[in-house]
């Protein structure tokens, strides 16, 4: 036996917990906060690190579209119950996490299927400054 650890939680453990909460909040602000929800949403599908689809959410077909990766196939379809979004309706992957994620509707949200190595992300329009600042006349 190298060393018997302290077995009762104390304020120092609380400090570690607070640190993890702060880290989660900072990550949340940095990752979720940067995705403005203005304008048209774009569905971006990648498989094995390669972008295989980039289409406007409104233009995505109503019939399910199949994407394959790493020997698995995902059926991706749109949901119009309430706000328009996208989901994995059927998958033959072993974990089914992609199906359980449900419908994503906001910019920055992702559905990730690790066994199939497929990710489906909703991208929003960013204020990149490419467009005109002012239109006259």
């Amino acid at each position: 036996m190298k060393r018997m650890p302290a077995l009762k939680a104390n304020r120092w453990d609380g400090a570690v917990a607070v640190l993890v909460v702060v880290l989660a909040v900072v990550c949340g602000v940095l990752i979720w906060g940067r995705t403005a929800n203005a304008g048209e949403l774009t569905v971006v599908v990648t498989a094995d690190g390669q972008e295989v689809e980039r289409v406007a959410l409104d233009a995505f077909p109503d019939t399910p579209r199949a994407y394959s990766g790493n020997g698995y196939t995902l059926q991706v379809s749109t949901e119009t119950d309430g706000k328009r979004g996208i989901c994995v309706s059927v998958s033959d992957c072993p974990t089914q996490d992609c199906v359980h994620t449900g419908t994503i509707t906001r910019a920055g949200q992702s559905i990730v299927c690790l066994p199939a190595r497929i990710s489906i992300t909703l991208e929003g329009e960013t204020a990149s400054g490419d467009g005109p600042d002012l239109v006259i006349g």
Binding site: A17, V20, V21, L23, A24, V25, C27, G28, I31, W32, T46, D48, G49, Q50, G108, Q109, S110, V112, L114, R117, I118, S119, T121
Partner: peptide
């Protein structure tokens, strides 16, 4: 593995759950 940053979306949730 995926070659993109999409999994980062879940990091805040995973950190919260790790508590």
């Amino acid at each position: 593995t995926l070659g993109n940053t999409a999994p980062l979306y879940y990091l805040p949730i995973l950190l919260g759950v790790s508590l």
